[in-house]
Amino acid sequence: MATIKEELRAAVKKLFDEDRIDYFVGYVEDYGHTFPAILAKGSDLSRLTFDRKSYNNLADFLPELRGSRVGLVCKQCEVRTLNVLAAEGQIERDKLVVVGVPCPAMVDPRKLPADEAGLDDLDESYWQEKCRRCLERNTPFADVFVGERASTPTPAEGWPLLQEVEAMSAEERLAWWREQMSLCIRCYACRLACPLCYCHQCFVEDNKPQWLDKSVRPENNLHYHIIRAIHLAGRCIECQECSRVCPVGIPVDVLNNVLARDFAERFGYLAGETAEAKPALTHYERDDKEDFIL
C-alpha cells in the first residue's frame, strides 16, 4: 500500500500535469525538519511530506499567492481556516485545490524527543494541546482526498493550563499575565503566523496616531495581545499557531480559547465549522441570544 507521502506526491504531480494549479503549498522534509514550501511546476516533489511535524497553518500563505491557482495540503485546521477566509471574502475558492489529509495529531515541538524514530507512535502526552482536544481528524471536504480516513478521536476533557488560569483569583490572574507579558519580545510572530491576521496594516504599525508604543514593556505587550485577541473573537479556529511559534513560549492562545468558548456558549457558533456559516459578529439572526446584553 502506498504511504501518505507517496500518495501526496502522486496527487500533486497529477495536479501539475493536468495544469490545474500554478503553485502547490505543502510541506517538505530536509535537514531534519519538516517545513512549508511553495512549489511551482517542475519542482522536485520527492521531498513532499505530511507527518507529525507538519505544524503550520498553510492558509497563511494564500495572500502571497493571490491571483494564482493554488493547491494546498489541508488538515482539518486549514479547512476550518479556509471557511472563515471564504466567508470574509479573502480567498477565491474556485482558484484553490484543497488536498485533504487525515491528521495524525501534531507533536508539540517543545516535547519533541531527540530521537525521532518513534515519532508516529508518540502518545498524547507529546501532542500539541489542540490535538489532544481535537474532535475530527478528517477534513470535512476536499477536492482531492489523500490517505486513509482517520478514526474519530477521543478528545481529552479540558485544557489543564486553562483550568489552572481560570481557577486563579482576578489578582492572581493579572499577575500571571503580567509575568507572561514580561517575556514577550513583540516579534509579532503570533500575528504573522496567524492566517486570520491578514490586515494589510495592523494597528501596531500605525504611527499617525500611534495606538501602541514601541517600547517593550508588560503593559504595552498586554495591550497588543488583548487587541489582537478581540480582533480574532469569533474568527479564531484555534490552530494554536500563535503559541507554537512564540520563541519565548507564551501561551497566547489562552485568550483566544476563552473567547472561542464564549462564542460557542452564547451563539452556538464554532468558527469555520461549515462553509456556509456567516461570521458571527457581522451577522444577525432573530433568535440570537440576548441574555448577556445589559
Binding site: 522534509e29 530536509d30 525538519h33 519538516t34 517542475g42 519542482s43 522536485d44 520527492s46 503550520n56 504573522l192
Partner: peptide
C-alpha cells in the same frame, strides 16, 4: 515559524551546494 534555514541558503546561493533546501524549486 517556517524553518527557513540560513546555513542551507548561504550554501546554495554561495555556490557550496547545488540543491536548495527542500529540493529544487522553480
Amino acid at each position: 515559524p517556517v524553518k527557513i534555514n540560513i546555513r542551507e541558503l548561504v550554501e546554495y546561493f554561495g555556490g557550496l551546494k547545488d540543491t536548495p533546501p527542500g529540493g529544487a524549486r522553480h
